[in-house]
Design a binder for these strands. Sequence first.
DNA 1: TAGGTATACATGCAGTCGCATCTATAACGA
DNA 2: TCGTTATAGATGCGACTGCATGTATACCTA
Lengths: 145, 145
Amino acid sequence: MKITDETTRVWTTLVSTSRELVEQAEADLKGAGLPPLSWYDALLEIEDAGEDGIRPFILRERLLLPQYGTSRLLDRIARAGLIERRICDEDGRGQVIFITPEGRGTRQKMWPIYAKMLEGQIQDKLTAKEATTLADLLDKIRPAV
Amino acid sequence: MKITDETTRVWTTLVSTSRELVEQAEADLKGAGLPPLSWYDALLEIEDAGEDGIRPFILRERLLLPQYGTSRLLDRIARAGLIERRICDEDGRGQVIFITPEGRGTRQKMWPIYAKMLEGQIQDKLTAKEATTLADLLDKIRPAV
DNA sequence: TAGGTATACATGCAGTCGCATCTATAACGA
DNA sequence: TCGTTATAGATGCGACTGCATGTATACCTA
């Protein structure tokens, strides 16, 4: 079980690059008085669900979060008034989540901050070809979902 | 400020691949009744420091952790008896950290678990050339440290 | 249709994190 | 040498996470 230097370098650069970029995005958002990244992902999915809303367990699958994580994330976002939880007519155990106008507005305010970070930290630093190669290689080592 | 699809794909694969691999490693370690990854990194640095020990603020720089994070991480590791904190003769504000035999032993037990994950999730999935390319590309987007 | 099992979601608890602040010592400038 | 500023490290507090478990409804099988 010999681990090569290249493997170690992939591991360390992967973890630290990811961590630093995420921290950068979180700091930018916080600096603009906006919610964290996790809210963005959730709001985007909920907004995309449109008129029908979305069930928490579906959201959970999309966001790859643990069940309790989803439950509490929705709690917080709902407390901020950005989503609305309605009981689910078809399933008495469940609920359906809808985005509110405030939720839509907040997500829209988040995007420029988010995009600016992606542009400055990723897009400007890679050619289109490099970006494709990078994403392809990351996909190769990504555990099956 | 137009974000291309390649950029988005880099971002999402980067974040999710990193997260999933870290979770995998944490789960493997926990499954073996061993401490989390962060302890490994700290123990390794402290062990490498050898007879002289290491100052927490140096460790902080190496591990890229916040100051309070370092302080509390060392607290936990010390409570488990894996390191020893001694007062620093040269600097009355500070301390010097040394690894204990138990600490050495724990780190050694952690390595095979860690290595097995790196082997299975990274090394087996990439050629040496691909690994180098991947690490190089990650370095290109890594924020300056 | 009754009883068991599976699914949807919530939550108590303990551990960890981020933030701000605190204490103590060191270093430096007038 | 005294007062100011910088540095090393700890910590109270509130927010978040993981884990285990709880509650309620749905489904399924005999």
